[in-house]
Design a protein around this nucleic acid. Structure first.
Length: 918
RNA sequence: GGGCGGGUGGCGUAAUUGGUAGCCGCGUCAGCCUUAGGAGCUGAUACCGCAAGGUGUGAGAGUUCGAGUCUCUCCCCGCCCACCA
């Protein structure tokens, strides 16, 4: 039976509104439940088909909680500041305020058409002055606490557009909009010291219920690493020795003896030049070129290492060795001290650099516990008995008279002695785990080591010949070895390993476990323990129009002064043009009568800050405003905050796990420290949903023309069908392709529900009752675990069952409608009413199930013989083994397979299988 | 390169967490009903085979009475981060 979904949906949406069933109460004896979705950015394109996935999921949760007796807050609002709207304004000349209002109206209509149970009376908009008044107020709190500060920061500058670009607007070093080249420029920016909270943001992850992958991403983003700072004294040409030094940060102080050179970042070199270092022309050219490049550009260069020798020398404090200091852009200015000690034998990047510039490599750690195999070539002077005498076993002897031997742990020294005494000059090698140690006996009798891994082995001759400038002949693998022997020049290890092990080539530390050396070596050289974070302070300035004005005034005598609280909000003035100015400043800078003001402290002429805030600002605290959205004396009343916070369940996209989630946690912690909010962590639970892809499995995009329009879907198939499909299409956390046919299937299901309502009987089959209780159970559990797809599936199984079993009692049908209501609220209310239900389903309690009824009376279990399925039999779920076994033996197919066999053992799992072992 | 997910019919997926692999939906096929069907109803649908039967969860090994699920080796795909010392 088809139904007119458009009328039905409109009718119930109006009823809900009239009844106000979704309004959260600020004072209630019910337990509270605060359920939050990420508020959307109201773009000109309208609602994306992906938005409702998250909203429907938490709508189901919110609706279920209400029926379970909770006072639920499920709010909605608009994160409306941002670049797309501003760019649209620049293009069309229309005020962004106006464009935003239009977009919000569209979004609102679209969301309402889907029947979400949002509390629309608490709608907020970040661009509303009564909202951003408080964003500004909070910024001033940061300012007053000394956490907001001004710093010179590099920005990406597009040479043709003459504007500053956000990092994500720079693609391959080029401007995203015009394709022109970009460079780095320096500009004073407002910063917020989020790094002061790094430790707490990390530690407090322990106290919240986030998906583990979300926690991991937050941890990685914060990027805490413990290490040591070590001083190296410098010898600068033309300056007295011992006057200068450089500090490096390292997490591997245990490898200090292997530090064969230092590398400083271009930024560090620039600093030195500024304080009077006379760098060579080559160094100056390199440094200025590196500094111009954007960071993204620097990373995109396929890791080809570049760099220049500075001519400066440093003293390795471990062994007093004199080592060169290089400048290279693979060392970042903004992390650690901007200078590193390079240990090429145990760091991939340092190794690549050393190889590119022929710098020495010294292995200082060997693998501790791997077995040792050795291949002995040209062992003319050695007999098998010599090996046996020292406990070395011969695994293989080749036709050429070479040996492959196995050396027990602890016998390496004896083996080495035997080699040096008895063997003719030549080489042998040891396999230690996946690396090979080559040992060379020179003509003068001394032994050298060479370390390689398996892959390198295959190319050893080629690489080594190239390195030693020897001719390479692939047909003669001995070429390199012979050449090297003849010239006595080789020593270069060709492998880098970063695994733990035991120290070597490290003076008094030889033989020490490297973990132990991590504290022992710094102790000797005076290293200082230090914790570093990848997290940087938050760049809070944007040279843009469409953002919250930063409420500060610059006065010649008083410096930066906060706009007094009673003058907030600093309202974004209407300007004529929205383009950034030629100097890269916000269009606000061109408004002389807005910019020029007087100092709130001394009254002398002063200028307003023309930078605006990033769009992360308004979204960092919106969950607090929902609690008391119309308050004009505070961002929210303390007692309301105390009642509602923290958010009980927050769902959003993985793309916001690092920035938005971290910023808002930080923002809330700061407000907590200032005594403005009652909890330190804003979100008790955080989950995330998967992307909805186009039918072809690729991302939906306007340019590909594969975007699904939610309006059309709702119009044609109904909001309930769309809601069900968004939940049914696949596991909630996974990306899933959209399928129109799948949506049609949901529509069919809804019509089957209507049909089931036509089959009301006085006495239903016990199977229907059982299915109903199973369905209540499964849906209840699945919603909590976010397994919405299987919850919907179970409801389908139920409806199929009703049809097959010939009908349903009206009381059962009513119970089913209550279960269906959170998923398909319009149709379930309509059916409920048409069968005489007076109340809104939303006001009825969530149904309970009886586990005894849900339990099946008869289960069919598998009969296996030696683990192979031979039959299935129907038995009671708790039937004793003897009974089941007897029953199983009566099966003809079982008898057939048992013929001539005796049962040795039986494994019986009640309700599942019985396995006869013969 | 690092981190996190995955690989099951023609497709999206499910599997009580070590116990009958393929539930539910889509698609397809057959039949019914229809002037018609991109509507509805009924049934079938992992693969090979007429059948008995056999095979089957990316590949290969292992543990187990029993493996999609656990262990090891390898291959492929997706997302995020990416020279962080």
């Amino acid at each position: 039976m088809p139904y007119n979904h458009q009328d039905v949906e409109k009718k119930w949406q109006e009823r809900w509104q009239q009844a106000g069933v979704f309004h959260a109460k600020d004072n209630s004896i019910k337990p509270k439940f605060y359920c939050l979705i990420e508020f959307p950015y109201p773009s000109g394109a309208g609602l994306h088909i992906g938005h409702p996935r998250s909203y429907t999921a938490l709508d189901v949760v919110a609706r279920k909680r209400r029926m379970e007796g909770y006072n639920v807050l499920y709010p909605i609002g608009w994160d409306a500041f941002g670049l797309p709207t501003e760019n649209y304004a620049i293009k069309t000349g229309r005020p962004p305020q106006e464009v935003t209002n239009e977009n919000v109206a569209t979004f609102k209509r679209q969301l309402q058409s889907l029947g979400f149970s949002f509390d629309w009376s608490r709608e907020v908009n970040t661009t509303d002055p009564s909202y951003y008044k408080w964003t500004q107020w909070m910024f001033l709190e940061f300012f007053k606490a000394g956490l907001a500060y001004k710093a010179r920061m590099p920005i990406n500058w597009c040479l043709s557009c003459k504007i500053g670009l956000a990092n994500e607007e720079v693609v391959d070093g080029k401007c995203e909009r015009c394709g022109g080249p970009t460079e780095k420029r320096h500009k004073e920016q407002w910063m917020i010291a989020i790094t002061k909270y790094a430790d707490r943001l990390l530690e407090d992850l322990e106290s919240v219920n986030y998906l583990e992958k979300i926690k991991t991403q937050q941890r990685n983003w914060i990027g805490r690493s413990e290490g040591v700072q070590i001083n190296f004294s410098l010898m600068v040409p033309g300056q007295p020795d011992g006057k200068h030094h450089v500090t490096v940060f390292t997490t591997r102080p245990d490898t200090l003896f292997g530090a064969t050179f230092l590398v400083v970042s271009p930024e560090k070199a620039q600093e030195w030049i500024q304080v009077g270092w006379k760098a060579s022309d080559e160094v100056q050219v390199y440094v200025s070129a590196a500094l111009k490049r954007s960071e993204i550009d620097r990373g995109a260069e396929d890791r080809e290492k570049t760099g220049v020798d500075t001519g400066v020398r440093a003293i390795n404090p471990a062994n007093q060795e004199e080592i060169p200091v290089w400048v290279a852009d693979y060392v970042l200015g903004g992390y650690g001290t901007g200078a590193i000690m390079a240990v090429p034998a145990h760091d991939e990047r340092d190794f690549a650099f050393a190889t590119a510039f022929h710098l020495p490599v010294r292995q200082v750690i060997r693998l501790a516990n791997a077995p040792v195999r050795s291949y002995v070539m040209g062992a003319d002077g050695i007999s098998p008995a010599d090996f046996e005498n020292i406990g070395v076993t011969i695994a293989r002897k080749t036709a050429d008279g070479d040996y492959e031997v196995e050396i027990p742990r602890g016998r390496e020294k004896e083996f080495e002695r035997l080699m040096s005494e008895k063997m003719a000059p030549g080489f042998w090698n040891e396999y230690v785990g996946d690396e090979t140690v080559f040992l060379f006996k020179h003509t003068d009798g001394h032994i050298e080591r060479l370390v390689m891994n398996a892959q390198t082995m295959a190319r050893i001759d080629e690489l080594a010949c190239e390195f030693n400038h020897l001719p390479y002949d692939p047909k003669d693998p001995g070429n390199y070895i012979n050449g090297a022997l003849a010239r006595n020049t080789w020593y270069q290890p060709l492998i880098v390993h970063t695994q733990p092990g035991v120290l070597m080539n490290s003076g008094e530390f030889d033989g020490m476990e490297n973990e132990q050396a991590k504290s022992a070596i710094p102790k000797k050289v005076g290293g200082e323990k230090k914790v570093q974070y990848k997290l940087r302070d938050w760049v809070f300035s944007r040279q843009r129009y469409w953002g919250e004005p930063i409420p500060l005034v610059f006065c010649q005598t008083c410096g930066w002064v906060a706009v007094p609280v009673e003058h907030l909000p600093v309202v974004l003035p209407i300007v004529e043009k929205y383009e950034p100015t030629d100097t890269g400043e916000s269009p606000l800078a061109a408004m002389a009568d807005w910019v020029n003001t007087s100092c709130p402290t001394c009254g002398s002429p002063a200028k307003r800050e023309t930078d605006t805030m990033p769009n992360w600002a308004g979204s960092s605290w919106y969950f607090l405003r929902y609690i008391d959205p119309h308050n004009d004396t505070a961002f929210a009343a303390p007692e309301k905050l105390k009642y509602w916070m923290p958010v009980d369940w927050y769902n959003g996209g993985m793309e916001h796990t690092t920035l938005h989630l971290l910023y808002s946690r930080f923002w809330n912690k700061f407000l907590f420290d200032r005594g403005h909010v009652p909890v330190s962590e804003p979100y008790a639970k955080r989950t995330s949903h998967g992307l909805i892809l186009a039918e072809d499995g690729t991302k939906m995009s306007k340019s590909k023309g594969n975007v699904v329009n939610p309006d059309e879907m709702v119009e044609q198939y109904g909001a309930d069908a769309v809601r069900l499909y968004e939940l049914f299409m696949g596991p909630f956390a996974e990306p899933v392709p959209w399928s129109l046919n799948g949506l049609v299937g949901m529509r069919r299901f809804l019509e089957k529900v209507i049909d089931a309502g036509q089959k009301i009987v006085d006495a239903e089959d016990a199977e229907v009752t059982r299915l109903l209780h199973q369905t209540i159970k499964k849906v209840s559990e699945d919603v909590e675990a976010m397994r919405f797809n299987t919850a919907v599936s179970q409801m389908m199984i139920f409806i199929n069952g009703v049809k097959q079993m010939g009908g349903i009692r009206s009381t059962s049908f009513f119970l089913f409608l209550r279960v269906l209501c959170p998923f398909a609220p319009h149709l379930s209310n309509e059916l409920h009413e048409s069968f005489g239900g007076k109340e809104l389903l939303e006001t009825l309690p969530w149904p309970m199930f009886d586990p005894k009824i849900a339990q099946a009376e008869v289960v069919s279990i598998g009969v296996q013989i030696n683990g192979k399925m031979r039959a299935t039999i129907d038995v009671a779920p708790d039937a004793p083994q003897e009974q089941v076994q007897a029953r199983a033996l009566r099966e003809p197919n079982v008898q057939k397979h048992l013929e001539g066999q005796t049962i040795r053992k039986t494994v019986y799992v009640a309700g599942r299988i019985i396995n006869l072992i013969v």
